[in-house]
Design a protein around this nucleic acid. Structure first.
Length: 555
RNA sequence: UGACCGAUGGUGUAAUGGUAACACUACGGUUUUUGGUACCGUCAUUCAUGGUUCGAGUCCAUGUCGGUUGACCA
């Protein structure tokens, strides 16, 4: 019995060590903690797969917890989209929770801190507080309000809660050390006044805890064992631990991993929002967006995204993953499942001169050579066809295995044809080509003995239906958007969306379902966009097929 | 210029002191009624220097480079 040793990432290692040491009775409990102020993106998918995966693999549970401590920016619209996206990715949470569920408890935690002399109300304006913070190399100064009595702090904090003060008039701060080398430990703000309506608690509260005084407390209340977050929270960990220790509550532990950076796109919520607000994209679900909803509309499958997250790994060093990896994952998945169909995107008319006028025959073509179970469909063939313009060359290049004067190709699932002649317009463009077919070369019953190298796709003009095609490509022309900051808009790819208003597709596509992926043979994977109407089919390109001829051609 | 984190092929991720591996990309080739898929092959003395050790990618020290961190955001 060959024992295959699966290599562990550093978090799995920690979890296994903890289980071995009997920590928390061997219990594993993680959480995915989005703030409901934006849509989920592929970076969140990495975190979702990590948190749910860790729990799944070690018999644990995962909570979905909305980090809703800032009523000004948060909304239920986002809550709903986040839930839908997590489910679509294939995960089911143990408990649906909200930081706002714990506002009473967190308030009590603050009171506890005040009573221990570890928190105080500061009356200063934010710029004053900021000035007193000092800098990484210069110690901060203590607030003149730092040594108020416990009674006074208790009274003031209660009156903050009661709504006696305006926004910004007072804050509650933890009393740690103004000369701490870690800036986050210099008496951080833990409560602020915001007279705003919260999406869940309405107007019950006018004070709200800050992230640092909410996240770890929620983790602790839920007895989360492994609180996994991204690297930038590393510097918050001493504070995370400080609150838990001073409060004497369940000791959740925080661990940090490197967030996903994807090439040729932007990932920060702020920049994605900018693309939406400035109408550079059509919305959060624009197929060019790295959002889960954008990827879904683009035609990515949940399995392809999960595989992607598995493939890129978990570590602590900064990384930049090439979008090509995502392309690979979706091709890998769709290759097995997507039905093959024929679509001509850039038509060139072909007349089969020796095929009877008015005759039609139905050819039976397999739906997917990778999946015999998928069966066959009937495709109509007739005298006049469209083929792809790029499949004909007036003066064929070396190694061009398609049509040109005197050259032969197989029409996929049909006959072998030979190009006899072509017609040009006044401008010198080829407008149609004349071919003759080999009657005994019909696919599956070929007795011609001919062996042609090229196989091309086609549609019967008489039977074809039309559709709009939206070809998507990478959002940016540069790999690493982190190097250009807010200048990223200067590097938008003008070809991130190319619309082809009218293409010709085989009639079976009349019954295409929204969101279902198909392969346009020799072109790429496409899926029907929700913008589709009764009289207009719209297909999004998920990803093109690999094209080694494109490379050969450019040699 | 403080604190913290990191450094392994073009890109990611492994190797848990004992022969540097896997995937993607790229480049060759085989198969193919998709120039797709599948399959085969090619591409590395682990940032530098010193130390510990029989043995170091791994441990220690110093340096270099990169990242994070100073919102009444999370």
């Amino acid at each position: 019995m060959a024992e295959e040793k699966k290599s562990l990432n550093f978090l799995e290692q920690i979890v296994e060590d903890d289980i071995k040491a009997g920590k928390n009775g061997g219990r594993i409990h993680t959480r995915f903690p989005p703030e409901p102020n934006g849509y989920l993106h592929i970076g969140h998918a990495k975190s979702i797969c990590l948190n749910f995966g860790l729990a799944d693999n070690y018999g644990g549970q995962t909570n979905l917890r909305f980090d809703d401590t800032n009523p000004v920016t948060e909304d239920t619209e986002y809550v709903e989209s986040i839930k839908a996206d997590v489910r679509w990715l294939g995960f089911e949470w143990e408990n649906e929770l909200y930081a706002s569920d714990y506002f009473d408890q967190i308030y009590d935690f603050a009171v506890t801190l005040i009573k221990k002399g570890l928190a105080y109300v500061d009356d200063q304006a934010s710029d004053m507080i900021a000035a007193q913070k000092g800098s990484p190399t210069v110690p901060g100064e203590e607030s003149p309000f730092r040594y108020r009595t416990i009674e006074e702090n208790l009274d003031l904090f209660e009156r903050m809660k009661a709504g006696e003060f305006a926004d910004g008039e007072k804050v509650l701060r933890a009393k740690i050390a103004m000369d701490h080398p870690n800036m986050h430990m210099r008496d951080p703000l833990i409560y602020r006044i915001k007279h705003a309506t919260h999406h869940r608690t309405g107007n019950k509260w006018c004070i709200y805890p800050m992230y640092d005084f909410a996240h770890g407390q929620c983790d602790s209340i839920e007895e989360i064992t492994h609180s996994v977050c991204t690297l930038e929270f590393d510097v918050h960990r001493p504070l995370y631990d400080w609150f838990i220790e001073k409060l004497g509550i369940f000791p959740s532990k925080q661990y940090e991993f490197a967030r996903l950076n994807l090439s040729h796109t932007v990932m920060s919520k702020r920049r994605l929002l900018q693309l939406v607000n400035e109408k550079i994209v059509s919305g959060w679900d624009d197929p060019r967006m790295p959002t889960i909803s954008g990827l879904r509309r683009r035609g990515f499958t949940p399995a392809s995204i999960r595989n992607f997250c598995e493939k890129i790994g978990i570590a602590k060093r900064d990384n930049l993953i090439d979008v090509g990896v995502l392309d690979f994952c979706v091709r890998e998945d769709l290759n097995k499942s997507a039905a093959r169909v024929m679509a001509v995107l850039d038509p060139l008319k072909v007349v089969i001169t020796n095929y009877p006028e008015g005759q039609t025959e139905l050819l039976s073509i397999e739906n997917n050579p990778e999946d015999i179970e998928s069966g066959k469909r009937e495709v109509p063939f007739s005298r006049e066809l469209y083929i792809e313009r790029e499949d004909f060359m007036e003066v064929p290049a070396k190694k061009f295995f398609r049509l040109g004067p005197g050259l032969m190709v197989r029409l996929k699932g049909a006959y072998i044809i030979q190009c006899d002649d072509f017609v040009k317009d006044a401008a010198g463009n080829v407008t149609e080509i004349h071919c003759s077919y080999v009657p005994n070369s019909r696919s599956g019953e070929d007795t011609s003995g001919l062996n042609v190298k090229g196989v091309i796709h086609w549609v019967s003009i008489e039977h074809a239906i039309t559709a709009e095609v939206r070809n998507y490509d990478r959002l940016l022309i540069i790999e690493d958007s982190s190097q250009v900051g807010d200048q990223f808009k200067k590097f938008l790819n003008p070809e991130s969306l190319t619309v082809i208003p009218q293409v010709f597709v085989e009639p079976s596509l009349k019954d295409a379902e929204i969101g279902k992926s198909v392969q346009f043979m020799r072109k790429g994977y496409y899926c029907l966009d929700p913008d589709t109407t009764a009289d207009k089919l719209i297909f999004n390109r998920t990803v093109s097929l690999k094209d080694t001829w494109a490379k050969e051609k450019n040699k």
